[in-house]
């Protein structure tokens, strides 16, 4: 199940978002408290984290920076009522956010942004999975090659198979049975 974390000091914002996103079938965790949101990063793996920009105890960019350390794979979004240039620059440069959304928001806009963030998250996860698979396969291949080399060194020619014209395998007569 795709898990999404929402952080906003205003409870009504959280319930409006939960309401709006409910038809999408994502598991949504809302937090008004930054400390609690940070704590839940230990318990859940989020695909997307959406944070308010201005909050009483910590600003959204600081929170997302922490979140990035704890869950680098979660895609980060800012939802802000405060669209000035400085806050955007901070969000992009420091928290490396994927999207900067503004309040008031539009259903299509926010759903599309989250969907594309989820896609990015899944793509990255798949990438990582494939990379692991490739690395695993490469170590297997390398081990096999080394074994072949070792055999060839001990018994030169052992790794080569001699065949007749019709394809049947030729066994050296000198070889002990």
């Amino acid at each position: 199940m795709i898990k999404i974390q929402l952080v906003d000091d205003e409870a009504n914002i959280l319930s409006a978002l939960k309401r709006l996103l409910r038809p999408q079938g994502w598991e949504i965790h809302g937090f008004t408290d930054v400390e609690e949101a940070l704590g839940s990063l230990r318990e859940h793996n989020y695909a997307v984290i959406i944070s308010d920009y201005q909050m009483p105890t910590a600003d959204g960019v600081t929170y997302l920076q922490f979140a990035k350390q704890r869950q680098p794979d979660a895609v980060r979004l800012v939802l802000s009522a405060h669209g000035d240039r400085n806050s955007m620059i901070k969000a992009i440069n420091q928290a490396e956010v994927y999207r900067f959304l503004s309040k008031p928001w539009d259903e299509h806009e926010i759903v599309a942004a989250i969907k594309s963030a989820i896609d990015l998250h899944l793509l990255r996860a798949e990438n990582r999975h494939l990379l692991k698979q490739v690395q695993h396969q490469q170590t297997l291949i390398r081990a096999r090659e080394q074994e072949l080399l070792r055999l060839e060194q001990e018994n030169p020619g052992i790794t080569r198979v001699m065949r007749d014209d019709d394809g049947s395998v030729l066994l050296d007569d000198d070889e002990p049975r």
Binding site: N12, A16, L17, L20, A81, H82, K103, P104
Partner: peptide, 21 residues
């Protein structure tokens, strides 16, 4: 004024969202 805009955008944000729901 900038602060007030922020203060208004929050409630307007969720009211607008709720209307869509």
């Amino acid at each position: 004024a900038a602060g007030v805009a922020h203060e208004i955008n929050n409630p307007v944000g969720y009211v607008y969202s709720n209307l869509q729901s």
